[in-house]
Design a protein around this nucleic acid. Structure first.
Lengths: 148, 148
DNA sequence: GATGTTGTTGAGTGATTTACTCAGGTATGT
DNA sequence: ACATACCTGAGTAAATCACTCAACAACATC
């Protein structure tokens, strides 16, 4: 299943921050409420995002989180890898520290390496800004549907 | 991690069967030994492959398993899906019985749908016969390296 | 037709991962 | 000081993974 809730929640939180850029820090409680994410879980994801350099956080009253760089400069690939670790479908692609596992399905890895590369390239070509744009588009559609 | 040992072991077992086609049924103990797969675990995988129509099994002394159709007609995609279930990276692609989960990361699923389709297309284009050929090639390489 | 060899099935189990929660601590504004 | 936020690490219930075990069913051969 490649993607867990971490990648899901984390990306959604980033979209939320991107949508409120320029309004000062956004608090985790707001994000959690708007995106239906358990607040105490979101804490950890925000910490990961901060350590990876995607967001800046300020403490104290009126503190919160904000994007560390413009949404155009954030690729979906980097985000997901920061949240999920490697996205490799196999485990034997990307040689780990103690290199082994060269056997087994890695005999078929020429297929998977190709698929993996294509996947990463595609994810790297999608920016956070595009995700925001798509969500806005989706919202407009939903409103229209509702009005009919 | 998308692929577990099931897909790995199962495909390797199929390659083994394909390599010994025409020699009568191959016993699970032979496959297990040659491919380093726990025999009692392999049992379940062979059962899955049989139910999916990939192999035929005969019981009793000199029984064993053999390919149900020529290796050219077996695509890697079908094999892996029979062994692993769906290969979807998300869970919200391929609408399940009780259709929901349309929320969450599925907002970004336009990206993933594309990646998923490309992946399936690539896997569908690889036949068991090709995997066998690749393994033979790999063995030749290994022998040459060893001789140097 | 008894015996031994093979495949078939389902239940069970220890280890790992997932998706969290909780209980503290630390920094910051008023 | 004190309230308000973020920060960190430990812990945990549920699910999944990678198997094992035990009993059974079919077949071949003597």
């Amino acid at each position: 299943m490649l993607l867990s809730t971490k990648g899901d929640y984390g990306v959604r939180a980033m979209i939320d921050l991107a949508k409120h850029v320029g309004e000062g820090p956004v608090q985790r409680s707001e994000i959690a409420r708007r995106r239906q994410i358990p607040e105490s879980y979101l804490d950890h994801l925000l910490a990961q995002l901060r350590r990876a350099g995607f967001i800046r956080s300020t403490r104290g009253p009126h503190g919160g989180h904000e994007l560390a760089k413009p949404a155009d400069d954030v690729a979906l690939l980097g985000l997901l890898e920061a949240l999920e670790g490697s996205l490799t479908p196999l485990g034997c692609l990307e040689p780990a520290a103690g290199d082994e596992a060269a056997e087994s399905i890695c005999g078929q890895n020429w297929v998977w390496q190709e698929i993996y590369d294509a996947m990463r390239a595609r994810l790297d070509a999608v920016s956070l800004a595009e995700l925001v744009e798509h969500e806005r588009e989706h919202e407009r559609q939903a409103v229209i549907t509702y009005n009919i």
